[in-house]
């Protein structure tokens, strides 16, 4: 029996930022791509102990667990602890599709006064608090990569991307952060 395999994180060793922006790789998290029709939302919310938002660009948070609306029948569920989200979703006993994407995605935390400017280096969305308030989330583009953007505070964002895009996304965030420092 070989030694238990351990995780090698896609953004190990990455750090960056500027006078106005701090960039940190997010800790490993449990992630679920959850798909369901409206009639299943209630049961899934009960099972997940988290309301599933049904309005565009909104999210819900309960403890370490977050549900991000990505589309009319699609949520990204993130739990900052190691949890069997697929199992929990299945326990709801309703028609749904739950796929574990904990390792597909990785995330970078972007924090500081210049956070939105750094993200606007590659993201065309309006990140003012009016248009993208705390708790807002959206799948969008960041330069030539696709990301999920989640505002966790007035000057704090979580940027989720597929793991192989992480060097590009973190690199462009670092460039944006550098510019936001000037």
């Amino acid at each position: 029996m070989a030694d238990l395999a351990t995780r090698t994180l896609p953004l190990r060793g990455f750090h960056g930022g500027s006078a106005t922006v701090r960039l940190t790789p997010a800790a490993p998290a449990s992630r679920l791509s959850l798909r369901a029709k409206p009639d299943a939302v209630g049961a899934l919310a009960t099972a997940l102990q988290l309301s599933l938002p049904t309005r565009p660009k909104t999210s819900a948070t309960s403890g370490t667990r977050h549900a991000l609306w990505l589309g009319p029948d699609e949520w990204l569920v993130i739990d900052e602890t190691e949890t069997d989200l697929v199992g929990i979703a299945a326990s709801a006993g309703v028609l749904q599709s739950a796929t574990d994407i904990s390792h597909r995605n990785t995330a970078i935390l972007v924090e500081g006064q210049g956070a939105s400017a750094a993200i606007n280096a590659g993201c065309p969305q309006d990140l003012s608090l009016k248009a993208f308030p705390v708790g807002a989330c959206s799948r969008t583009v960041f330069g030539k990569a696709e990301v999920v953007l989640y505002r966790t505070g007035e000057t704090a964002f979580r940027v989720e991307c597929w793991r192989s895009f992480a060097p590009y996304v973190s690199g462009l965030l670092a460039a944006g952060a550098q510019d936001a420092g000037h």
Partner: peptide, 29 residues
């Protein structure tokens, strides 16, 4: 190696073959 896998018995070489799928962070180990 103690981590979850989806193991395929398949071949793109014509030989006896397996494809080991593991959650990506476990890939290097």
């Amino acid at each position: 190696c103690g981590v979850p896998t989806r193991l395929f018995r398949m071949s793109f070489t014509g030989e006896l073959g397996f494809e080991v799928n593991v959650p990506a962070d476990f890939g290097p180990d």
